[in-house]
Nucleic acid binder design. Structure first.
Ligand SMILES: [Zn+2]
Ligand SMILES: [Zn+2]
Ligand SMILES: [Zn+2]
Ligand SMILES: [Zn+2]
Lengths: 151, 151
DNA sequence: ATAAACCTTAGAGTTATATCAAAGGTCAAG
DNA sequence: CTTGACCTTTGATATAACTCTAAGGTTTAT
């Protein structure tokens, strides 16, 4: 039976976070000492580890709650239930990556246009591009650049 | 001289958001009518467009504030000031993408292990992997899998 | 003149995931 | 017994970028 700070050290989650997860309904300490200290059983610890692993895998606390309810009652759920959560998460992650990749393109494009030198920014092409509303466009003349590169 | 709702329609930012940006110090309406309505000048509008473009390019409001102060006082700043902000942003975006890519790997790995069928989740390999603390590892035996694939 | 549409402000609420503070009770070592 | 480490709870704070509400004043069109 671990105390909260032992479980914190063991699990890599802070005692604060463990209490927060408890308040969120994800975990619990199945026993308390007479004075109210949390005591975590082996099963409690396994559950905390499950939560930690799922969090590291990228699931939100909400999604972890769903996974936990499946875990607690496996024969009332199907593998489809599990993959559904996982697939939706994967889709969301892919969408986020796609957005960030567009942003990366914008930023690279801006950086390509400015030498970053120590002269005054009076004619800085990045500032100018942002004024021209041109940051979101795809690489200008990427075809032409390719042509030029192959010349 | 535009009113706020006209500028909202023109800029693609809501009137709420325009007021919020004003409170945040990013923009302003250089005039008000006698009754207090905001009136945006051409210069005000250009500034709003700058903010919108920078936001679309992925800059945070804090970063936009920095860019705006450079824009307002260009000859006191260098291109290096501008690229510094942009490079740091790009680094942060790349880091975020890397994190999400790891998460994507985890999720794909989990999905590869489970058929997602309609049978009971009693032996679901995703749940088992999360219990085994195995979600963060790289593809198991990716080398071996490659070997097998080439067999 | 009246109704619809538009504007104002201050301030609260949202989302997700913690993280900390205050005020106090408990436990182990010396 | 005292000191210091550890534990408890409730509730506040933080982040980013909005989003909305309440309560009321203004403009415009018919
Ligand atoms: Zn490029
Ligand atoms: Zn420049
Ligand atoms: Zn894979
Ligand atoms: Zn399964």
């Amino acid at each position: 039976m671990m105390k909260i700070s032992q479980l914190a050290a063991h699990s890599g989650l802070s005692a604060h976070t463990l209490r927060f997860y408890e308040k969120s309904g994800l975990i619990e300490a199945s026993q308390r000492t007479g004075s109210g200290y949390r005591r975590y059983s082996e099963e409690d610890i396994r559950r905390v580890e499950f939560v930690k692993t799922a969090r590291d895998a990228g699931f939100s606390l909400d999604e972890i709650a769903q996974l936990l309810s499946i875990r607690l009652d496996r024969d009332q759920h199907t593998c489809e239930d599990v993959t559904s959560i996982t697939r939706h998460k994967l889709e969301a992650v892919n969408e986020k990556i796609a957005q960030l990749t567009e942003i990366r393109e914008s930023l690279e494009l801006l950086l390509e246009s400015c030498d970053g030198g120590l002269d005054s920014a009076v004619h800085c092409s990045i500032i100018e591009a942002l004024e021209a509303g041109a940051a979101k466009t795809t690489h200008p003349n990427e075809d032409q650049a390719t042509k030029e590169a192959t010349l």
